[in-house]
Nucleic acid binder design. Sequence first.
DNA 1: TCATTAACACGGG
DNA 2: CCCGTGTTAATGA
Length: 209
Amino acid sequence: MIETLQSNFGHLFEEELLLEISKVGKHFNVNSGETLMELGSKVRNMPLLVNGAIKVFRLDDDYREQILYFLERGDTCAMTLNCCVANSQSEIKAVAEFDSELILIPAENMEEFLKYKSWRRFVFDSYNNRFSELLEVVDSLAFMKLDERLFNYLHDKALVNSNLLLEVTHNEIAMEMNTSRVVISRVLKKLELEEKIKLHRNKIEVLEL
DNA sequence: TCATTAACACGGG
DNA sequence: CCCGTGTTAATGA
């Protein structure tokens, strides 16, 4: 585990902290599509994402989803951070975008790690990054038309997958964006006519980033 | 005006 | 045949 930490977080944390994390951290692997965190579940660990990507969703009262953002290597989940500090329940749902590798740090260690400058920096930066991503989501929901939002989604998905050819169905997108398949199909068709994407069965090709 | 729901046809695997 | 896709019509916000 210490090697994993060194290669992925060595640039962020000092050696001493890496060692401490390796003592209390737990290695954790998830398969693509697996749910890491359910709405309302108790949060006792804070994840460090070593490899892969995680989708973070907000759910409404009827458990309909709205995707918020993707987490990538080197990220942590600020919502989880929040919950660990407050010892509260999860406000979000997290699903693995593809096979991913995490290191879980028990909540009780978080505070003592604050004696490390690099840890304070990391926590602070994570809040910053998530906060601005969240603002972008607010902008997107409040001001953008669905065609822009949809292209944004495809764009982000292409980036985290490092692949312009996305294996996703119209229905899956509709679920993640909390709308209906009819609408997604229609807007995708429009984006295709604008030559921003190309549609295939079960696949969508992003033509511009 | 634009989303949702239901319904239907088409076609690839 | 099953599922994903493209479309339409009716209804509602």
